[in-house]
Amino acid sequence: MWDYSEKVKEHFYNPKNAGAAENANATGEVGSLSCGDALRLTLKVDPDSEVILDAGFQTFGCGSAIASSSALTEIIKGMTLDQALEVSNQDIADFLDGLPPEKMHCSVMGREALQAAVADYRGEVWSDDHEEGALVCKCFAIDEVMIEDTIRANNLTSVEEVTNYTKAGGGCSACHEGIENILSRVMAESGEEFVAGGVGSAVAASSPAAASAPAEAAPKTDIKRISTIMRVLEAVRPRLQADGGDCELMDIDGNTIYVNLTGACMGCQMASMTLGGIQQQLIEELGEFVRLVQVEKKADQLVGIGG
């Protein structure tokens, strides 16, 4: 069963604005090919101010499709059409305290219904600007079509490149076989052959072998080493702080560096990415292999939860 937030459940069990809006003067009807779900959004728009006076939805779809529809109507009521067009699918997902990655397309469908309804009101023809494919990377909700398009546009030839361009494959790495298959297929179109390299791209970064790579750098004295570590960490903190998180240096023990990654980043998929990313920067700056370990801040003990 899906791990739905309480907010999703609330909007599914007791949807707001279900049914067609009365005296509606704008209708948007869209469906998501990826799951067969479909949605009709009806709006009652004040002709003078373009304010959305009422909104209603009818949805053929799963729990999160219904909840996304309900959330959408709640968000846009009272907005002008221009304001409503600013609503992104992420806004809809955020309103619901998040959606599982497989279900993000439900929020995309909501945003598209809104665009279609506004186009209908303005007498324009709405055409969809993206195609959706099978979900490949569950960590970052990246679908097949997005990966294919990116490979073609940038002539990508490795899983690592696909990860750098799309984020797909940058989390748990379970989808690397799928990405390799897509690479083989797309590269074959232009007569190229995909050649996979050895063990895999993600392994190299954390293996001791990486230590020898920047070996030409001279060994650093303790003080110099510590100040380098602190400088790297200070450099990434503003980015984390902007997202409501932070990264504090807790301790250094040989080649293990303990940090306390806090705030919004804690526990989410990005935490490991960030840890991995910072670790990589540290390895490059220090010229030696180090391991970054997440610890929770306790008065007098360090509790490692992974590295």
Binding site: G19, V30, Q58, F60, H130
Partner: peptide, 23 residues
């Protein structure tokens, strides 16, 4: 809640009554 449904039965010619743009 379904766009294919109208009151007590399916919308008349349901596939016609509701023909969303699929993406």
């Amino acid at each position: 809640l379904s766009p294919y449904w109208d009151g007590n039965g399916p919308a008349e010619d349901p596939e016609q009554a509701f023909a969303p743009v699929y993406a």
